[in-house]
């Protein structure tokens, strides 16, 4: 994959769908993800849920939430989903901006493209971050985690399709930028091309299915080819 491939993918894209945690910011930079995962486990134990070993060792709150979908107990799912959402809003206050994440959003807008966020984090936490960083006006819509339905998070195409529908766009004229395999899968299942953001060593290899892979968000800014750059 080359700069030419990236240019080809970007040239076709009228809409940029951004995953939030990764391409835009690191939401749990200060408010630790593993602490939140631990809190969610405590909630589950309080609800007399038996935790399998892989969940006991899990550091990702969203993996703990996804596990609740297997319990067949809607009230517990809702409880954990709401607790996760509260923690995410707290975490968003101390989230760390991704290098050149803002530049991607602003340059995409300058180039006449529309920008949406499609996140497995709660919409409220995304709004909190965008608002604190004066980015709200650039992004529409913000599609957060489907309420109390963790089985419909990415890699399910549901949130991606929700964004595409809200924008009245064709999947092929969108592109999703994500930093996990589930982003790529969700995008492709929705018929949307996907750019893998390899923000950690070893990720590039896992993004074999992505249409193109970048190591820095700055590569996207360059691809937007804005006059001032």
């Amino acid at each position: 994959m080359t700069t030419a491939d990236l240019a080809k993918v970007i040239d076709r894209a009228r809409v940029i769908l951004l995953d939030f945690d990764g391409p835009v910011c690191s939401i749990f930079a200060q408010h630790s993800a593993s602490t939140v995962a631990h809190e969610l486990r405590r909630l589950l134990v309080d609800q007399a849920v038996t935790l399998p070993p892989e969940i006991l060792a899990e550091r990702d709150p969203l993996a703990v939430l996804r596990f609740t979908a297997t319990l067949g107990r809607p009230a517990v799912v809702r409880l954990v989903d709401e607790a996760t959402a509260r923690e995410e809003v707290t975490a968003a206050r101390t989230a760390e901006p991704t290098p050149y994440g803002r530049e991607v959003i602003v340059a995409a807008q300058q180039s006449g493209r529309r920008i949406a966020v499609v996140s497995n984090n709660s919409a409220a936490s995304v709004h909190a971050y965008l608002s604190a960083r004066r980015l709200t006006s650039y992004v529409h819509p913000v599609i957060g985690r489907p309420e109390a339905a963790p089985e419909r998070m990415k890699p399910d195409p549901f949130p991606v399709l929700a964004a595409v529908r809200e924008l009245g766009a064709e999947p092929a004229e969108c592109v999703l930028v994500g930093d996990s395999v589930s982003d790529i899968e969700a995008a492709h299942a929705a018929g949307v091309p996907a750019i893998g953001y390899a923000n950690k060593p070893g990720k590039r290899e896992r993004f074999a299915a992505a249409d193109v892979v970048v190591d820095s968000m700055a590569e996207l800014v360059t691809a937007f080819a804005v006059d001032e750059l």
Partner: peptide, 12 residues
């Protein structure tokens, strides 16, 4: 707000 090139890098 716009993204410009500062010291060879994009900056909003």
């Amino acid at each position: 707000e716009h993204t410009v090139s500062v010291d060879g890098k994009p900056m909003a």
